[in-house]
C-alpha cells in the first residue's frame, strides 16, 4: 500500500517536469514579447523589468497584424457558420430520415474524411482559379468548408442518432414538416454537439496555414497564421516584436482554451468513441 503511494509520487515527478516543459515555452515567449530589444539582447531569460506593451501595439499597428486578424475573423466566422448549418442539415437527414441512398452518402462523407488537403491541393487550386475564386474570401471559405465539413457531418450524424425517434415522431404529429422538425427540434437539441464541433472547426480554421497559403496568395488577403510566418522574415533582428506577433495570434486560442476546454475535449473524444 505504502509502496503504491510512493509509486504515485514517483510518477508525479516526471509529470511535473513535463508540465513545466509544456508551459515554459509560452511563458518564455510572453516574457520576450514584453522586453525591449536592448533588454532581450543583454539577457533573454530574466523577467522583463517592466512589461513593454509597445511591442504588442507595434506588431498590431505597423506590421499589418490588425488587417490579418480581421481577415481571419471574417473567414473563420463565415466558414464555421456554414459548416454547422450544412453539417447539421446533413446530419439530421442521415440520422433520422430514411431514404434511398442514405448509406452511400454517409460512406461518401466518411471517404472524404480520409482525403487530406495535401492530396487535392493542386487540382483544387486549379478549380478555384478556373472559377475565379482563388484569392477571394468566398474561395477560402469554400475551401475551409469543404475541408472540415465531413468531420462536422460525421459528428452531427452520430449526435443526432442519439435523439429518440419518438421525439421526432411526436413533433410530426403536432403538424411539423421535416423542415419544422429540423428547426424546432434538431437545432435546439443539437446545441451541445454544435458547440463542441463548432469550437473544433474554429480551431482548425484559425490554426490553418497551408490552405490559406495556397488559396489566398496576395499579401493583403493573408490570414493571421500566414501573417505570423511572414513576420519572421521581416523581424529577424527584432525578436520581441516577432514574439508579440506570435502572442497576438495565440491569445484568441488561449481564451477559447481557458473557457471552453471541456467542449474541446468532448469533441475530440466524440470522434474517437464513435469512430
Amino acid at each position: 500500500m505504502a509502496g503504491r503511494r510512493l509509486g504515485r509520487w514517483a510518477a508525479s515527478v516526471p509529470m511535473a517536469v513535463l508540465a513545466l516543459a509544456t508551459i515554459y515555452p509560452l511563458v518564455f515567449t510572453t516574457n520576450v514579447a514584453m522586453k525591449t530589444r536592448r533588454e532581450y539582447i543583454l539577457d533573454r531569460f530574466s523577467p522583463a523589468d517592466s512589461p513593454h506593451l509597445e511591442n504588442v501595439s507595434g506588431a498590431w499597428n505597423s506590421v499589418g497584424m490588425a488587417r490579418y486578424f480581421a481577415n481571419s475573423v471574417v473567414v473563420v466566422t463565415c466558414s464555421v457558420f456554414l459548416m454547422l448549418l450544412i453539417g447539421s442539415m446533413a446530419g439530421f437527414a442521415l440520422s433520422q430520415l430514411r431514404f434511398r441512398g442514405s448509406r452511400v452518402v454517409f460512406l461518401g462523407c466518411l471517404a472524404a474524411l480520409f482525403v487530406p488537403f495535401q492530396v487535392i491541393m493542386v487540382p483544387l487550386a486549379r478549380v478555384m482559379a478556373d472559377t475565379g475564386l482563388i484569392d477571394t474570401y468566398p474561395g477560402l471559405i469554400l475551401a475551409y468548408v469543404a475541408q472540415f465539413l465531413p468531420f462536422t457531418i460525421f459528428l452531427m450524424t452520430s449526435h443526432y442518432r442519439t435523439i429518440p425517434a419518438e421525439i421526432v415522431h411526436a413533433a410530426r404529429i403536432d403538424g411539423n414538416t421535416t423542415y419544422g422538425v429540423y428547426r424546432r427540434i434538431m437545432i435546439p437539441l443539437g446545441v451541445p454537439a454544435l458547440l463542441s464541433v463548432g469550437i473544433l472547426d474554429t480551431l482548425f480554421c484559425w490554426n490553418d496555414v497551408l490552405i490559406s497559403l495556397v488559396m489566398m496568395p496576395s499579401a493583403e488577403h493573408r490570414t493571421l497564421m500566414v501573417g505570423v510566418t511572414s513576420l519572421r522574415g521581416q523581424y529577424s533582428d527584432d525578436i520581441p516584436t516577432f514574439a508579440s506577433g506570435v502572442l497576438i495570434a495565440a491569445i484568441p486560442v488561449l481564451l477559447i482554451y481557458l473557457f471552453l476546454q471541456r467542449q474541446i475535449a468532448d469533441g475530440v473524444t466524440a470522434g474517437s468513441t464513435k469512430g
Partner: peptide, 20 residues
C-alpha cells in the same frame, strides 16, 4: 437537406481527387 453537403463534398473533395 443533403444537397449542399453532397455538392461541396463531391465537387471540392472527391472530384479533385480524381482530377489530381
Amino acid at each position: 437537406l443533403l444537397a449542399p453537403a453532397v455538392l461541396i463534398i463531391v465537387f471540392l473533395r472527391l472530384w479533385p481527387l480524381l482530377l489530381g
